[in-house]
Amino acid sequence: MNPFRILGDLSHLASILVLIFNIKSTNTIEGISIKTQVLYVLVFLTRYLDLFSFRLVSFYNTIMKLFFISSSIYVVVLLQRSKTTQAVAYKTMLLTDTFKVQYILLGTLIAAFVINHKFTFVEIAWSFSVWLESVAILPQLFMLSKSGKSKSLTVHYIFALGLYRTLYIPNWIWRYHTEGVIDKIALAAGIIQTLVYSDFFYLYYKKVIKRSALNLP
């Protein structure tokens, strides 16, 4: 594995740990979109179906896959649990978490049926998960843009998550040169994903950083 791939995976891991530790330590779910988190559960469950084939790639690969599936489910459980412990915050979340996910689900499902490596259940599911992942952050970004304020938690989380797929792009270029292979679907979706995140950081920079600089006494 090349350094971009390792760093990419580590930042992906870090993003989830940042999210979980913050929810646990601050005991708040403010600013988090449950829709995005449910979409990630769907992403990991549909992508890692090969776990059931037991023809595993490597120990590292399997452990990471199991971690991503279980941690994404755990985040949704934590958010659901807050329904009783943080009733007000939970209600606020539902009121601001209003992105229409059915459109992304439909769009990515169509994309998966049209663009895939092989017309089999596992490959369509894999393709669906890759396309879905590229846009799964949209409900979270939509929620953030509606509330107009961003907690440092959500920004750190989104930053680490955005970094992960961005680092995968030099990884793919590296692999193309050293191994002569490139996954065009992963590459195309990875570029879309990176663009979605860079748009967020551009807006974040313009709105939050510049504004706070202007507001200085």
């Binding site: 791939r5 090969d50 790639v57 990471m64 896959k65 991503f68 092989k118 995968y168």
Partner: peptide, 10 residues
């Protein structure tokens, strides 16, 4: 028949 595709990334 092409062999099964292996997705070795995450």
């Amino acid at each position: 028949e092409p062999s099964e595709i292996v997705h070795d990334e995450l």
